[in-house]
Design a protein around this nucleic acid. Structure first.
Length: 449
RNA sequence: GUGGCUGUAGCUCAGUCGGUUAGAGCGCCGGAUUGUGAUUCCGGAGGUCGUGGGUUCGAUUCCCAUCAGCCACCCCA
């Protein structure tokens, strides 16, 4: 007897049973719906790209995370580690046919060979949307509105969208003559929330070699508190004299004002100027944003993005600016699970039809067909097992309604409509078109939504 | 990639200072109740103690390696 192969998955790669796939698909469908409501169109690219496309201007960090190998023809290839780099390649290649502005969304898996943690995997899904080919701040403003709509629709509780502008940071760095050390400085400042002011100060003095006065000014900007208007006024003072700094403040002020005007009052407090966030990726050039859940800020940003004006530089002479953001689906799911905000539903149909009378199978199938025709999802149990067992199955899977029809019901052309949440049962007559039955089912489904 | 903690039934976890047949709760299957699910009672299935090696008369227990999970760093979604 040969030994069985042990069933297992690779580190950082996961199976998705129905109980996780159902909420997953719900998030994907919600993202799709929100993106489409702004006119973003679906597109996709291959998982595998020529290695040179992915390496681009990548640092050693991205290099380390990249899944790379030779294909069967000996070509150096790699699995995409985000959707933005393939997007850059895509628009550089097709912009003639697409025209601008090009608004797209893409929901797909990406791969990174980094170490795993909760909510961090080696294969994960990104839900990106971007507007390519316009410098207009309107696109940046809409990005914030999309994120707000999306998270509002996802039952995540209260959340905060932290917004910043790279120009503000870069302007101050320019004034402080730290522009050549921008990456290190930004990386330290980005950790402000985690390692606090002393930690940042230590890093700036150590790794960066900044003077105390430089550190003071950097922290003066990033530690700002108060209303968005107050903070912007302070940021303006700190960056006065730097063109990119002043422009950054002006753009951010305009964007935040526009977002406030577009949103209802109760949503306005969610949008906050956060001078310390900068996002790791160095291709951002303008507004950047991160989104945290108020109930679980520690899990990090669940939706992030920003403006990048030179993304396609590597692939074309044409100047193609872009602005876009991404929903971190897997991290969001991990957060929702931890917060107990995921329903444990294991059914995709809402109505359960027990197979009660072994001789009447075709009558059940006929009824189920007419209900489905009315848009009601029905699962018919495949075996004429004991009714109690079948109801137990329905209950555990999370069905909303069971339709109990036995010999006497068939004789009287009626049906017991059982609300599985309350246990109430109501007898409803049905004719060939099942009109009354459909109405009763719809009223139960509507009442407990 | 570096460091730390963990790994016993489908799940959550006891336990073995190295010693014969490894336990509980929940879940699952069946019955009490052959037409009604979250209660109750009874019965049942399910584990080579993550995997491989070493030490030992003997290892689930000790040691090493490996795989996986979690945490921190790095980085980031």
């Amino acid at each position: 007897m040969a030994d069985k192969i042990k069933p297992r998955t690779l580190k950082g790669f996961r199976d998705y049973p129905p109980v996780t796939m159902i909420p997953r698909e719900w998030i994907i469908e919600t993202a799709r719906r929100v993106y489409r409501s702004y006119g973003f169109c679906p597109m996709d690219t291959p998982s595998l790209e020529h290695l040179e496309i992915l390496l681009g201007k990548g640092s050693d960090e991205t290099d380390k995370q990249l899944y790379r190998f030779e294909d069967h023809g000996g070509r150096p290839v790699g699995l995409r580690f985000d959707l933005t780099v393939p997007l850059a390649r895509f628009v550089a290649q097709h912009i003639q046919e697409l025209g601008t502005p090009f608004k797209r969304y893409q929901i797909a898996n990406v791969w990174r060979g980094e170490n795993t943690q909760r909510g961090r995997y080696r294969e994960f899904m990104q839900c990106d949307f971007d507007t390519i080919g316009t410098m207009s701040l309107t696109a940046d403003i809409e990005m914030i509105l999309v994120i707000n709509d999306l998270l509002s629709a996802l039952n995540v509780g209260e959340f905060t969208i932290h917004v910043n502008h790279r120009g503000i940071l870069n302007g101050l760095l320019e004034k402080l003559e730290l522009a050549d050390k921008a990456n290190r400085v930004l990386r330290s400042l980005d950790k402000l929330a985690k390692i606090k002011e002393e930690g940042v100060r230590k890093e700036l003095a150590g790794a960066v070699g900044a003077t105390d006065s430089q550190a003071d000014q950097l922290l003066a900007l990033t530690s700002l508190a108060g209303s968005n208007e107050e903070m912007l006024a302070e940021a303006e003072k700190l960056t006065t004299g730097s063109e990119i700094g002043e422009q950054g403040v002006a753009q951010l002020r305009e964007a935040l004002a526009a977002v406030s005007a577009a949103l209802p009052g109760e949503a306005q407090g969610r949008i906050q100027f956060a001078p310390s966030i900068c996002r790791g990726l160095d291709y951002y050039t303008g507004i950047v944003l991160e989104t945290t859940l108020d109930e679980l800020p520690g899990i990090g940003s669940v939706a992030s993005g920003g403006r990048y004006d030179n993304l396609t530089d590597l692939y074309t002479k044409q100047q193609l600016p872009g602005v876009g953001a991404s929903l971190g689906l897997d991290r969001l799911l991990a957060a929702l699970e931890e917060l107990g905000r995921l329903e444990q539903v294991q059914t995709t149909a809402q109505v359960f039809l027990p197979f009660f009378e072994a001789q009447r199978r075709d009558d059940y199938l006929k009824l189920a067909t007419s209900l489905r025709k009315a848009g009601i999802g029905v699962e018919f149990f495949p075996e004429a097992k004991k009714l109690g067992k079948q109801l137990q199955y329905a209950n555990r899977r999370g069905f909303r309604i069971a339709l109990v029809i036995g010999g006497s019901e068939f004789d009287n052309r009626e049906c017991q409509v059982k609300n599985l949440a309350t246990g109430d049962s109501k007898t409803v007559a049905y004719a060939d078109d099942a009109t009354d039955l459909i109405a009763e089912i719809r009223s139960i489904l509507a009442s407990s939504d």
